[in-house]
Design a protein around this nucleic acid. Structure first.
Length: 774
DNA sequence: CAGTGAGCGAGCTTCCGCTTGACTT
């Protein structure tokens, strides 16, 4: 029997702490929350003052039973869950469920996993803070009420199995509104003018930009005409020191952003890799909103920096959090041992570790010192000026290790090293080039930039960013995809050797990679929610209720009182909306069909977005067509819809059989000789695909099928060895069998195959259907 | 796998935040 039982939230933490505490302490983990509201119904007795109906979920019963047993044997139970709202609630639930008593229970907290911090916590126990617990109950109950009362309205009015919630619905709203801004955006163009001068007998060159942009071609030409034969003189040189400071150590959100920008990881991937590193003891806890480093970490960093880079590079500092609603129960994300420059592990683990190491070390290094020089160049014939700017690094500082990336698209910079220059120097013009540039719409969100935005709004927590991003995609509100850019023409006008030449050039614009786009369902659900639940969809809703949770946490407000004030008007709104709102299928009438005169509309059907000509009556059946991937109810035009009804059609013949192009359940396809061939929208347009291209597609598919077969057997046509996604496998009568790793697929004989089949142990199970509930 | 598409409708779906495994393909 052990005298002291310590309960923390995470098992990795438990084993670390146990080492610090010695034999008299047994450290166990609760694996997060051990109780939650009943899931089968609302889980709240609204009539009994919102009494929560807590149950221990199935997958937590085992750990609860074990803790209960250990608690009974221990003299003192130390509740050491995190020091935040959720952590306090975990301690309280443990207290209740394990049947603890005041006299044998102590509540302790620490923000860093160091021996000093733990021992210090043990010396300063307190009791469970019920006000903080109540703030958590209010948070929990509010989220349940919002989610479980609004979602069923969506099932009724839009589509079954949809969901709404305080966090996810706002995330979707951000994406829908950004998309609409982008659709409404009108790009304008202007001419950016750069000049390049010779210096020092044509050895060097000086690059500069005009302090003005011209709105059209004519004004630009006028300007260039004036510059022909003009004199260019340096009138001013200003040199100013400047500095750059390192970014704060990683939190969950900034780690997700940097791993996305620098390593192209999705937020889910980043968290999965970080979890591995954490469990291996390589980094501190990865779900945190704090930028704090422990004293030991700061000392460690200082030692490493002085040893590796020298005294001048060291600048120990502590950062302050800027994010709204941060609870700072943990340290920032950092390497456990800063003197471990690299680690063993998979490539992604090593890369993420490297990123964390650099960020942490850089945060403890000196500012970089720069010198910025701005040179003004007058033009004798016109008041505009050219500006050349240069930057010289005086001291590298933290930049030796790491520089944070930004979300902005990389605009070409004119800042570079300048050649030696003097005031009143006359410059010899090489060329002036005016390039037409277009204004940009705001960028679409990536997973990581959406997390950043949510954090700014104080919505969601480190532990939920990745799951939220996943939920809105799983529900089909949002898709992450690439979009190909379009080719755009732009003009370039050059003055060189006293002649002006004009060129038309082409560039690709608007290409997107791994960006979040709202789906039709996402837009319809969003519009419905914004219309009927404006206050909950408000970007400040969370911030406002957080203020009330804070009041509850300091004992100024009763939690059921707060909920009551929210629930009464909310529930009434739910009832009214259920009663009176129209079914919402996002129907949009685009005009009349030029052939029949019947109305043409788009809306959400049973199987997704569709177009329809005519309305169902007793004698008339409407015609239907599914929308293509990439088309949206919100933006599709009448012509595009009419095109959809031109399919299916025969586009020619091949091997004396018709080739048909159509759009089916799984997108556009070719049909030939009763076989189907998918058409990829990114590569071909089903409406304009030619017979020649169709034959090519058929050929490619046939070749793929040939490559797929590794071996046929004359003994039995049912038996084949095929090449699949996971290597070679055996197919026999439509069942798949794995090939033991010891055998080579090509060399297998008929008998060996039949033995494998008879044995049956490597038979693959049928593809998993819908997840069974646990 | 491939031209579905409202109306009677079984029973089900859903929230946010703590934490890790179980699972194939």
């Amino acid at each position: 029997m052990v005298e002291n039982l310590v309960i923390v939230e995470s098992p990795a933490k438990a084993s670390t702490i146990e080492k610090f505490l010695g034999k008299n302490y047994l450290v166990k983990s609760s694996f997060g929350h051990i109780r939650d509201l009943d899931k089968k119904n609302l889980g709240i007795d609204v009539k009994k003052d919102y009494e929560p109906q807590y149950i221990v979920p199935e997958d937590k019963k085992k750990i609860v039973a074990e803790l209960k047993k250990l608690a009974k044997e221990a003299k003192i139970v130390w509740l050491a869950s995190d020091e935040d709202r959720e952590g306090e609630a975990i301690s309280w639930h443990l207290y209740e469920v394990l049947g603890l008593r005041q006299d044998n229970t102590k509540r302790i907290v620490f923000h860093e996993i160091t021996k000093d911090a733990i021992l210090n916590a043990i010396k300063n126990p307190r009791f469970i803070d019920l006000n903080l617990v109540n703030a958590q109950q209010a948070r929990r109950v509010l989220d349940r009420l919002v989610g479980f009362e609004i979602s069923p309205i969506l099932w009724k009015k839009v589509k079954p199995a949809l969901s709404a919630g305080r966090v996810q619905s706002v995330a979707v709203r951000l994406i829908v509104e950004r998309e609409r801004e982008i659709q409404a955006f009108n790009s304008t163009s202007s001419f950016k003018v750069n000049a390049n001068f010779f210096t020092e007998q044509k050895k060097g060159s000086l690059f500069s930009e005009l302090d003005n942009k011209f709105t059209d071609r004519k004004v630009t030409l006028d300007f260039l005409n004036k510059c022909q034969g003009a004199q260019f003189k340096i009138t001013d040189i200003v040199t100013k020191p400047s500095k750059k400071s390192p970014a704060a150590p990683f939190t969950t959100s900034t780690l997700q952003q940097e791993a996305s920008r620098k390593l192209s990881f999705s937020v889910g991937q980043t968290m999965a890799i970080a979890q591995k590193l954490y469990e291996a003891g390589k980094i501190t806890y990865m779900r945190t909103d704090s930028v704090n480093l422990s004293d030991t970490a700061i000392t460690m960093a200082k030692d490493v920096i002085i040893k590796e880079y020298g005294e001048k590079f060291s600048n120990p500092r502590q950062y302050k959090t800027k994010s709204k609603g941060a609870q700072e129960a943990h340290e920032a994300i950092r390497p456990t041992y800063l003197d471990q420059f690299e680690i063993e592990g998979s490539a992604t683990e090593r890369r993420l570790y490297d990123l964390i190491w650099k960020r942490t070390v850089a945060s403890q290094m000196s500012d970089a010192a720069l010198e910025k020089t701005t040179v003004t160049i007058n033009i004798s014939t016109t008041p505009e000026k050219f500006i050349a700017s240069g930057e010289v690094m005086k001291f590298e500082g933290f930049l030796k290790v790491y520089l944070e990336s930004t979300d902005e698209e990389n605009e070409e910079s004119t800042e570079r090293l300048l050649p030696p220059l003097k005031i009143n120097q006359i410059l010899d013009l090489n060329y002036i080039k005016a390039t037409e540039r277009f204004t940009h719409h705001l960028p679409r969100y990536t997973e990581a930039s959406l997390v950043k935005k949510l954090e700014e709004l104080g919505i969601g927590r480190p532990s939920t960013y990745a799951p939220t991003i996943s939920t809105i995609q799983v529900r089909g509100y949002v898709v992450k995809e690439d979009r190909e850019g379009i080719t755009r023409e732009y003009q370039e006008i050059t003055l060189q050797n006293l002649t002006i030449t004009e060129k038309k050039l082409k560039e690709i614009t608007g290409a997107e990679k791994f960006k979040l786009f709202p789906s039709d369902i996402g837009m319809i659900v969003n519009d419905f929610l914004v219309q009927h639940f404006k206050d909950i969809l408000d970007y400040n809703f969370t911030a406002n209720v957080e203020k009330e949770f804070d009041e509850i946490a300091i004992g100024n407000l009763g939690w059921t009182k707060m909920i009551d004030k929210f629930y009464n008007p909310f529930h009434e709104k739910v009832a009214i909306t259920t009663e009176t709102s129209e079914r919402s299928v996002g129907e949009r009438i685009l005009g009349a069909d030029p052939v029949s005169g019947k109305p043409v509309m788009v809306k959400i059907g049973r199987f997704g977005p569709m177009a329809q000509i005519g309305v169902a009556t007793d004698e008339d059946k409407p015609r239907f067509a599914g929308l293509l991937k990439g088309q949206s109810i919100d933006t599709i035009s009448l012509d595009e819809v009419l095109d959809l009804f031109k399919l299916p059609k025969v586009i020619g013949s091949f091997e004396e059989k018709d080739v048909l192009v159509g759009i089916g359940r799984f997108g556009p396809y070719l049909k030939h000789d009763n076989k189907f061939y998918s058409i990829k929208i990114a590569e071909d347009n089903p409406l304009t695909v030619t017979i020649d291209r169709a034959i090519e597609i058929i050929g490619i598919k046939r070749q793929e099928l040939l490559n797929k077969v590794i071996k046929n057997f004359s003994e039995d046509a049912n038996l084949q060895i095929l090449n699949g996604r996971w290597g070679a496998y055996i197919v026999f009568k439509k069942e798949n069998y794995k090939i033991p790793k010891t055998k080579s697929a090509e060399a297998l004989t008929f008998k060996e195959c039949m033995d494998i089949i008879k044995d049956g142990s490597t038979k693959s199970k049928p593809a998993r259907g819908k997840k069974k509930k646990s």
